[in-house]
Write a protein that binds this DNA or RNA. Structure first.
Lengths: 129, 129
DNA sequence: TTGTTATTGATATTCATTATCAATAACACT
DNA sequence: AGTGTTATTGATAATGAATATCAATAACAA
């Protein structure tokens, strides 16, 4: 009984916008982009759609050091990021070793439904000089 | 020239309170505890002290899934956490393998001043059943 | 003791995210 | 196609963590 989900063009729009955006985006940024493309979608709806996408596993999120929640399309494969704290560039990195290590450690302690956060921050080559 | 740091009882108080608190605490929680112990310290000062402790490497922080920044005493050695999303218990884990991997990946991409976030979330043994 | 100035604390402000609620539209069923 | 139910939307108010402001205070070098 029950909470049957409905399909709306708004949800599709957010999904598309998220797929278009390479790398991480904030809800506010997505909302801005959508409006710039002529959409009349509301900010609250963008937040709701993103929350749903995360719970469906179609997107993942992380907290920026400015306190914003950033979202990213996750329909492809699982990977992690190398993020420049100065210019914001993000590089996707494979992390099979870290993956394996994380799930091993979790299992050793009897944890289930394990997820993890593995992100590396620093200054990229260009910003280092 | 300048910016000479000064020692104050407020900074000590925050440091002590943080050491007392086992596990992660928010700035607001620390402030509350301090006031309950009769301190007249201000909330803004607690935030400032915590920020300084983090930059000195005496504390580390992570974002709760409710969007709060949580702090933890880190005067011992570097380590990471296994966190139960249900009951909040945190288990310290050694992560030498992950450490090495993280700095190796970062260097390969020319990154400097590298820090990382490695946290594992899930349901602990007790909360899993 | 004194002068300089980093620090404090009360509070206003910022800003991301959530709650509210009337209006709208998805969709199951005729 | 028409209709009723109700999930969803969107404008906006509300929440709440974190930061900025600024006069008053206190650390500390001389």
């Amino acid at each position: 009984m029950s909470t049957a989900k409905r399909n709306t063009w708004q949800k599709d729009a957010v999904m598309h916008a998220l797929t278009e955006a390479k790398g991480f985006v904030s809800a506010q940024q997505l909302h801005l982009v959508l409006k710039q493309h002529g959409s009349t979608i509301g900010l609250a709806t963008v937040y709701r759609a993103l929350t749903e996408l995360v719970s469906l596993g179609k997107a993942d999120s992380l907290q920026s050091n400015e306190g914003e929640t950033l979202y990213r399309d996750c329909s492809t494969h699982h990977h992690h990021h190398l993020i420049c704290e100065n210019c914001g560039v993000t590089i996707e990195i494979e992390a099979e070793a870290a993956e394996a290590w994380a799930s091993k450690v979790a299992k050793e302690h009897g944890f289930t439904q394990v997820t993890h956060t593995i992100d590396i921050f620093g200054l990229c080559k260009a910003c280092s000089k």
